[in-house]
Simulated scan of single mutants.
Amino acid sequence: MDTIPQRNEEELSLNHLQVLDVLLCERSLTKAARVLNLTQPALSKTLARLRHYFGDPLFIRVSLRMQPTPKALELAEPVRAILERMRALRSDHISFDPRTSDRTFSFFLVDAGATQMLPILLNRLAEEASRIRVRAVNCDAQHLDMWLETGLVDVAIGSFPALTQGIRRLPLWRESYAAVVRKGHPRLQGNPDLASFAAEKHVLVSAIGTGHEHLSAERVIENALPRENIICRVPSFATAALIAMHSDVVATLPLTLARAFCEDLDLRLIDVPLPLPSIEIAQYWHERVHREPGNQWIRSLIRTLFSRPEAPLHTAGTAGRMSGGYSLHEPAAIDAGHSTS
């Protein structure tokens, strides 16, 4: 009688190949460990196994980065193809039921998106899909397209105009800007003129390196204010709001987030007397998961909770923070400039 042969311990698993794939993308043990949710010692042990299996160092440390050897570069496409085939098999043959699934969905979004959206999303999941988990990841924006392609990120949410080839997007809403100051600020009221606004001290939220379209608004603010009045730069909208709460510093934020912080942190909303551009907030995903049932479901839920119909942009004085269920009809997703169904 034939029997199934014992597994050869020298063989590689799909997890080993995923580690190699991520290392090829990130070129850093620290970043790869964060992506894979592994400790660095565990990742180093896996890399040692890969080196032994292929008889090659695979990566050589050059300065602060790990440069792939010719052998590693040669393996990149075959490894990616194997991982892609396994993902296709899983999506084609495994059904998705949100009521019983224990899947973890990974999102890439800046802190403004996390602050606004995750509480609403988690509350809905608790009602409809209590076993599903959510993971917000902070990746190198230069590699975001690779993360979407490889499945390390399921959906990116924000404004990332550089994402094009092989990436689909679905617009959710357009975001304008307002500023926040602490209640009791000694000078600024609701509608300051440019001279009064520019004379104050400001904290500037920097989007450099994130690939986010907020960078265009950052540049306008930076050019309009005296250099000496930008006294602090931070990577987080939440940090900027907390600084404004505890000082007389002004923080300019996306309007939806500014309204939320005014409620939660007892801040006051003021208009920004600058021609700041509005930005389109969208969800992004890779073409290869466009019809994958789980990815379709989470995108549909995000659209139901957060999509807003086009409307004139409101001034800072108008009321209402983000809530769910703005639109029941999904507009066509956009793929490299073309509308798709």
Rank of each mutant, 00 (worst) to 15 (best):
L267C: 01
E292I: 02
D2I: 13
Y177N: 11
H286D: 10
I221S: 00
A42N: 11
S106E: 15
W173G: 02
S247C: 02
I302H: 06
H143Q: 14
R259I: 01
E84C: 12
P70V: 10
N138F: 12
E77P: 03
N229F: 04
A238L: 13
H93I: 11
R321G: 15
A126H: 09
N191E: 11
Q189F: 14
R87F: 03
E11G: 10
E128L: 05
L267M: 04
V62L: 07
R259D: 04
E175L: 12
Y326N: 08
S236E: 01
P226W: 12
S323E: 04
R268Q: 12
P119N: 00
T340I: 15
H93Y: 13
S307E: 14
A311K: 03
Q283A: 07
T104C: 06
R308F: 09
A33I: 01
R80T: 08
A178Y: 07
R299E: 07
L47M: 07
L118N: 07
L257E: 04
R268D: 14
R182N: 05
P312I: 04
V249T: 06
W173D: 01
F108C: 07
I298M: 07
F108A: 12
A81H: 13
A129W: 06
G151E: 03
S176G: 09
E128T: 12
I231A: 03
Q165D: 14
R34T: 10
V234L: 04
R51A: 02
R99P: 08
V35W: 13
